[in-house]
């Protein structure tokens, strides 16, 4: 299958022959695609590239509200970066960000893959029902989901505390009804992980399902005849064939989970600095007080972006290498 796609690609790429009589016509045609993507490029340039350049520039300056009004911003070199790196809270936030991403990405991929496999083995109607159900979680806006989770884990009338108190004390202990889930980083991040995974696994599940549909049934039938277990079939057939899909999903999950902001902002907020991640840290420095410090906030944003780019780049490289080897 992969071969056919590549052959087709080679044919397409090889077709414009400069020596052929259709050459000049083709060259005129080629302008079209570029013009077509021009509006998107302009929009991306204005809304994405330009702001990124601005953030890079501002991270080297002292920028407040007055500077936005046109006062020249003072260049401070790397002072903003030095200030961040010298702040204990930055390292705490960095540790939280990385650990959270590691746990959440793993949990999301496992939950998503298992659900995808489940969907693949369900009948048509049941599969549609389950897909519809999990897509509701995917479609829920982040703020809504975060508020629902803060209610579930709230101290007054929280459903989770109430349920845990119903369970035998020997199993889970007691006093859950008044347990403050957001007083310390570990329980806070436990709730955050549940919330984020709950929202992001449906996409993984549906993508895995889409991948599964392309795997010929004969492969599984043959494996079954040979007496394979489900575990073996996943690792010997499904995973190798869906490797490119898993690669993309992993990259996406890493990007999502490094940048989590909304849910943590709603769940524990700016008052609990000991539970900050990098996004919240950057936000509180830039916008937290009336005296905005956009320069400092930009520097934190640059650091976060570099980390995500680095992780993604390393990963994309390995994926491309594996593809090349295969």
């Amino acid at each position: 299958m992969i071969e056919t796609v590549e052959e087709a690609g080679r044919r397409v790429r090889g077709s414009p022959d400069p020596g052929s009589p259709t050459g000049p016509v083709r060259r005129r045609v080629r302008l079209g695609p570029y013009l077509l993507i021009l509006p998107s490029l302009v929009v991306i340039g204005v809304l994405l590239v330009w702001p990124v350049i601005q953030i890079g520039r501002m991270s080297l300056q002292n920028v407040g509200v007055r500077q936005l009004r046109g006062r020249p911003a003072e260049n401070v070199g790397l002072a903003n970066y030095r200030r961040i790196l010298g702040d204990d809270l930055f390292w705490t936030a960095l540790r939280h960000t990385v650990l959270f991403a590691a746990v959440a990405v793993t949990a999301t991929l496992i939950a998503g893959t298992l659900t995808g496999l489940l969907l693949g083995s369900l009948g048509r109607r049941m599969s549609a029902l389950v897909t519809g159900g999990i897509m509701v979680a995917w479609a829920t806006p982040q703020v809504t989901a975060a508020i629902v989770f803060s209610w579930l884990f709230g101290t007054t009338g929280g459903l989770v505390g109430w349920f845990l108190d119903l369970l035998p004390d020997g199993l889970v202990g007691s006093g859950w009804q008044s347990y403050n889930w957001f007083a310390r980083p570990l329980p806070t991040y436990t709730v955050l992980t549940l919330c984020v995974v709950w929202m992001s696994f449906p996409f993984i599940a549906v993508s895995v399902l889409a991948g599964l549909r392309t795997v010929p049934d004969e492969l599984y039938e043959a494996a079954r005849v040979d007496g394979s277990t489900a575990w073996q079939r996943f690792w010997k057939i499904t995973f190798p064939l869906l490797r490119p899909i898993f690669g993309v999903l992993l990259t996406l999950a890493v990007i999502w989970d490094f940048r989590v902001f909304t849910q943590l902002f709603v769940l524990s907020g700016l008052a609990n600095r000991d539970a900050f991640n990098l996004s919240l840290y950057g936000y509180s420095e830039a916008f937290g007080s009336l005296n905005a410090k956009y320069g400092l906030g930009s520097a934190i944003a640059v650091v976060l972006t570099l980390i995500v780019l680095l992780v993604t780049a390393v990963h994309v490289r390995t994926v491309i290498r594996q593809e090349g080897a295969a």
Binding site: A183, R273, D274, G288, S289, N291
Partner: peptide, 23 residues
């Protein structure tokens, strides 16, 4: 002081000290 907005708004200095002492 203009910096009170940072002390209280952005850094929440007293709330975080009180939180730590309570814990």
């Amino acid at each position: 002081s203009k910096g009170w907005a940072d002390y209280e708004g952005a850094k929440k200095v007293l709330p975080n000290a009180v939180k730590a002492i309570m814990q």
